[in-house]
Write a protein that binds this DNA or RNA. Structure first.
Lengths: 226, 226
DNA sequence: GTCTATATAATGATAGAC
DNA sequence: GTCTATCATTATATAGAC
């Protein structure tokens, strides 16, 4: 294994790839190849010599980020949901750019985003199932929908927070995400512990509605949309 | 009052503005002025003649969307949160492009996004306060943080869903958002009614931690981050 | 593998006729 | 107010020397 020190002691190809991951994550996918080349200390055409096109460069970044995070997932997995994993990973200086890239990816959509999202949903489902089995988590009438819902909201909340108040210095991403967790932990734990409502009327009304829909109204389909 | 039929019987300036709102909402803010001009049935330089620059055109779109939605908010306000308002508005054909624009705006960040977000948070705070006063909503240890949290998550969930599975035909935005609500209602109502946990241990542990933080650890600041 | 020089296409913006 | 013609800039991408 090599030292994890960035940019030193890497093939130009890898240096370009890392620079691209960092820039894409920092500024979005509209950054020019020139900027990336400059970051990597090479000329713009060399980027294309190695990767063929901007799209293929991005695809390679996707693959690299996916593989790297997947391989280090086992380490970081605590009692966590989708957002927790990202927040914890971002604390490690080496992984922060990858986390930024993942978040940019989800913000913009695309294949990698869906892949990560589905993996997060699957993780959540596992974690919730274990909780239900252990008796610490209440069962749901639709476990799959709940896992999807919780993941979507947690990830979305993180994204909204980060989009509306962007991180200027990439080195501060970890601190920024930690601040987000700090702001969110109390209301989240309150909600997860006691809920929001004082009675069951709304839930009961919905359950009646969904089993016996009023005429002319299509029955609500509890299948996931995304 | 004029008929609401789009594109007909409007000054060129207004037609351009509407075309820009629709295009920006549909394809994002990277669309070219030429495309917008074509949609409006005018030449590209005329767009600049009327608005000066692309940035000022976008600013005008922001202002128009904000004013229009604000003026029709009173109508649509039911027992709703941030997302509910947008979903309901998107059912009305005339407002769907404005909703798409707002969502794009939040996805990309910027001034309008923050303005809308803060308005949504304020609405949620009002609505929750009324619920607490009426005895239908449990009180929170930090009402402001809870309003922010719920708004952020609801809006973020909507955004993630829409980003990962984008709407192709703009006319279907309303149906798409309704499908999102359908997928989300059951788990949301379950969570809001019964919570997620079967005991209070995690919440109690956090409350102890936050009032008496372990040495060396900075006390968590429950202030909002965004 | 890496560069300089260049081709090509698209964008925001301007000039000036009508 | 609206157009056509055009400019300056920037983007991705290619050709070919070293």
């Amino acid at each position: 294994m090599r030292s994890a020190t960035p940019s030193d002691d890497l093939t130009a190809r890898a240096r370009i790839r890392d620079a691209a991951v960092a820039r894409f994550g920092r500024d979005g996918f509209a950054v020019s190849l020139r900027t990336i080349a400059q970051d990597a200390g090479v000329s713009a055409p060399l980027v294309l010599h190695h990767f063929g096109s901007k799209d293929r460069l991005r695809a390679e970044c996707d693959a690299h980020v996916l593989a790297t995070i997947a391989s280090h997932k086992a380490d970081a997995v605590g009692p966590a949901g989708a957002d927790h994993l990202l927040v914890e990973l971002a604390q490690v200086e080496t992984y922060a750019p990858l986390v930024a890239y993942v978040l940019r990816s989800i913000q913009h959509g695309g294949e990698l985003a869906r892949t990560f999202y589905e993996a997060f949903v699957a993780d959540a489902e596992d974690y919730l199932r274990a909780g239900v089995a252990a008796g610490t988590v209440r069962p749901s009438r639709d476990e799959a929908a709940r896992a999807r819902f919780l993941t979507q909201q947690a990830l979305g909340g993180l994204l909204v927070s980060l989009t509306l108040e962007p991180v200027d210095d990439p080195a501060q991403l970890g601190a920024r995400l930690r601040a987000h967790m700090d702001a969110v932990t109390l209301p989240a734990l309150e909600l997860y512990t006691d809920g929001l409502m004082t009675d069951r009327r709304m839930l009961d009304a919905y359950l009646v509605y969904v089993t016996d829909p009023p005429a002319g109204t299509p029955a609500a389909d509890p299948r996931p949309t995304s």
